[in-house]
Design a protein around this nucleic acid. Sequence first.
DNA 1: GTTTATACGGAACATTGTTCCGTTTAGCAA
DNA 2: TTGCTAAACGGAACAATGTTCCGTATAAAC
Lengths: 184, 184
Amino acid sequence: MRADAQRNLDTLLQTTMAVFASDGVDAPVRLIAEKAGVGVGTVYRHFPQRSDLVAAVFRREIDACAAAAAVLSAKHEPFEALAAWMQRYAAFVAAKRGLAKALHSGDPAFDTLPGYFDERLRPALRKLLETAAAAGVVRADVDADELLGAVASLCMSAHNAGSGRAERMVALLVDGLRHGATSP
Amino acid sequence: MRADAQRNLDTLLQTTMAVFASDGVDAPVRLIAEKAGVGVGTVYRHFPQRSDLVAAVFRREIDACAAAAAVLSAKHEPFEALAAWMQRYAAFVAAKRGLAKALHSGDPAFDTLPGYFDERLRPALRKLLETAAAAGVVRADVDADELLGAVASLCMSAHNAGSGRAERMVALLVDGLRHGATSP
DNA sequence: GTTTATACGGAACATTGTTCCGTTTAGCAA
DNA sequence: TTGCTAAACGGAACAATGTTCCGTATAAAC
């Protein structure tokens, strides 16, 4: 791949993320192209359809969320790392309400997203859980999948409630994990 | 209101319902206007925004579903009326997948729909439930709201599964109502 | 029958996704 | 360094669709 193409792809993805954050996932392709300093033709060469661009950004943010697990794990004690990551994940779900819409839109570009979700996020959380369980600070009988689903539901349904509610509910959930921990 | 305006409004709503059924709720306004034999200007005078037309059609179908309760109640025994209406409601939810999308779109035109849902459908189901409970053919401790929500969830999540699954699940649910019935 | 407020139709406009093609340029070889 | 070429670029043009506007037609009142 030519160097300029790679450069453009990078700035395009980064700019798109910023535009989605400020203007929502429905922002016009023209606007994204303009802010990235490229023509719409360039956008469409990298992403044949608008939805491909959206999916790419989501994948990138899923990656970032998964990568945060390792960072937090290295920086904090097992339980704190787990708790912090759960909040990180909750923030991701709450911020990306466009994601739910995308997943239910029926566009084939999003077909692989749920799988990507599992593939990246589940192992990340599983490792955090196992580490914390091995340290004896949380119970060991909770499934990573269920936890991801529960937090997602919490953040979706609580999204129109007052500020901080989702955070508090997630914290409550995480504290629940401490119950029944078996010291090693 | 002028007679021709009323006529146009009626045919417009009826035609729109048919077009939504065959082409989905994303059908272009032009197509709807054409099939209804009116100009787009007429559509927009009655419904300032496209979403207002969608909301009106949904309200109309909610009305029809609610009205079916009385008809079924008059024609069948209490339990059969209840069971038949539940299937009627399930079919409505399953068919109108655009409804879920609309409700989550954030368009203000749909803000009053959830309230309308409660206002019309809940009393209809409650009356069916009470009649059946009074006849001693179903238990009396089930809330109409919960039942509506449960069926909606069933039909939403089971929508991509094989044919008849949603119907079977709803039937199962309804049969569950028979359990613990107390004869009068 | 005349008048007038109302409703109508559809062309025109605005926005946005997508395609197309002439132009530019990065990478490479001589 | 220079010349060449395939790749990439930009943005005008196209297509689809929501929305507005206004000249025309007509139902209803007198």
